[in-house]
């Protein structure tokens, strides 16, 4: 890990949180039992926000290892695109969104089976190129017109979060580009073409070794909840249930934490 000190500290705190939260899900979780039984079959289709690609692929592999008869397939994309696909009748079992707004699109359409649960949180972090050539230290640097800065467009979730953070910090942002999604912003940091970008902590983690992350206190003003729900038209409800349980289990939460997310605070 090449995270700077503040974020490392935050991550350490998250670990503790995860341990506490884990016990509540543990008791209600029959996931391990079901998985151990290995009785799940067929295909499980999970629609998940792109930021979950690495973690969920890993969790899907675990579920398949425990259930040799099961095939897990993923559709990773932007949450709004996924929500549109689900409401247009795409055959999915599980929908995991990167924000509540897009989950609401699905629940309002009556397509969720039960209430969605928040399984992870993501906060913004500052990503800088390796070595931090422009000596960015905090959110206030985003008001520096001399720096080349990338922020997500306000139309996409990470951009909306960025606006909240800037407001909370009293910073008039001077971005050079409003990126269409968080990965595009991160790519520009990786290429060294911007001095800093405002992305999610999980994104910094996924690019560890190519970018450095700087945590900042104002990030707490825009905590992003990741809700997950089983869909009411799920072709494979048993497997969907098992996947939700796995995500909520200690193992699932640990995987999410390793990927830079944190467990839900309530």
């Amino acid at each position: 890990m090449r995270l700077r000190a503040p974020l490392t500290l935050a991550a350490a705190g998250l670990l503790a949180l995860t341990a506490c939260g884990g016990s509540t899900t543990d008791a209600a979780s029959p996931a391990d039992g079901t998985a151990a039984g290995g009785g799940l079959t067929g295909t499980l289709t999970v629609f998940a926000a792109a930021s979950l690609t690495d973690v969920f692929t890993d969790l899907g592999d675990r579920l398949m290892a425990d259930n040799p008869g099961l095939t897990v397939t993923f559709n990773f994309a932007g949450s709004s695109a996924l929500a549109t696909q689900v409401t247009q009748g795409a055959p999915a079992d599980v929908f995991a969104s990167a924000n509540q707004t897009q989950m609401t699109v699905v629940t309002d359409a009556g397509l969720a089976d039960g209430d969605p649960t928040v399984f992870a949180e993501n906060v913004l972090a500052i990503a800088v190129p390796e070595g931090n050539p422009a000596d960015v230290t905090g959110i206030a640097d985003f008001g520096d017109a001399d720096l080349t800065l990338a922020v997500c467009a306000p139309d996409v979730p990470c951009g909306a979060a960025a606006e909240q953070v800037f407001e909370a910090a009293g910073v008039t942002a001077q971005p050079d580009t409003l990126e269409e999604d968080v990965r595009a912003a991160l790519t520009k940091v990786e290429l060294g073409e911007v001095d800093a970008a405002l992305v999610y902590a999980s994104d910094v983690q996924s690019a560890a070794g190519r970018v450095e992350g700087i945590a900042f206190p104002e990030a707490e003003d825009a905590v992003n909840d990741y809700p997950i729900a089983q869909l009411s038209d799920a072709p494979n409800p048993e497997a969907a249930r098992a996947f939700l349980d796995l995500v909520g289990s200690d193992a699932g939460q640990q995987a999410l934490t390793d990927a830079g997310f944190r467990s839900p605070s309530n």
């Binding site: 990338a150 467009a153 971005p175 050079d176 580009t177 409003l178 990126e179 269409e180 520009k188």
Partner: peptide, 9 residues
């Protein structure tokens, strides 16, 4: 364009 030039109104 969006990759190389970015996006700024």
């Amino acid at each position: 364009t969006i990759t190389f030039a970015g996006n700024f109104p």
